[in-house]
Amino acid sequence: MLEFRLVQGSLLKKVMEAIKDLVTDANFECSSTGFSLQAMDSSHVALVALLLRSEGFEHYRCDRNLSMGMNLNNMSKMLKCAGNDDIITIKADDGGDIVTFMFESPSQDKISDFEMKLMDISSEQLGIPESEYQSIVRMPAAEFQRICKDLSSIGDTVIISVTKEGVKFSTRGDIGSANIVCRQNTSVDKPEEATVIEMKEPVSLTFALRYMNSFTKATPLSNSVSLSMSSDLPLVVEYKIADMGYLRFYLAPKIED
């Protein structure tokens, strides 16, 4: 059987809100390492990878590796019934066809349990190689969200270019064009407010803004976001989940016809 107890249950609620519109059904993999998920959107343009390490849970028991197929919209409906301060426990039996979500209020005066049917989902697991990226930009997550939102009111695609001057986000549409340049800025009070540009080589890639905007639904998970780019690889947009792991989005670039 498996049983995970997450004191900061709101993390799981935030993860679901970040991915449920991108991915419909997914297999959650449970092992002694942690609770993870890898899934592509229906058009195979974006891939989501989630890892919540076992050490981040107050209690984590997983007797054997288990794959749980869930409809994310249904899972989100269940998790919305948990209060933001609730402790969430996930339980399932080996070979069973249900998962139980238990919500405990902080004062322990309200305990709810919700059972959800599991699904058989055939999904392709992709090997994601460890890569050295040509450029990595770390910036405040709220700033990145604002840029994606602003640019999508003007164009459908964004060109992200990293040079020694900084990172430039450009778009063009029927009404005109826009360029937003963010320079490295490490002289801030809090590290999460910094913009840090690690450039080994300049890189310039084009992406669909629709997906970028979808990824920014993960903004409540982390103060900062990192964008890893190489000319021959998908973009990686990573939100670190404090003390537990990460939520990563991979986005295939637009390429020359």
Binding site: M40, S43, H44, V45, A46, L47, E124, Q125, L126, G127, I128, P129, D156, T157, T206, A208, D232, L233, P234, Y250, A252, P253, K254, I255, E256, D257
Partner: peptide, 14 residues
């Protein structure tokens, strides 16, 4: 704007 590529062009099945 170019053609949209897919993730499977870059990462292969395991």
């Amino acid at each position: 704007d170019g053609k949209q590529s897919t993730i499977t062009r870059f990462f292969s099945k395991v």
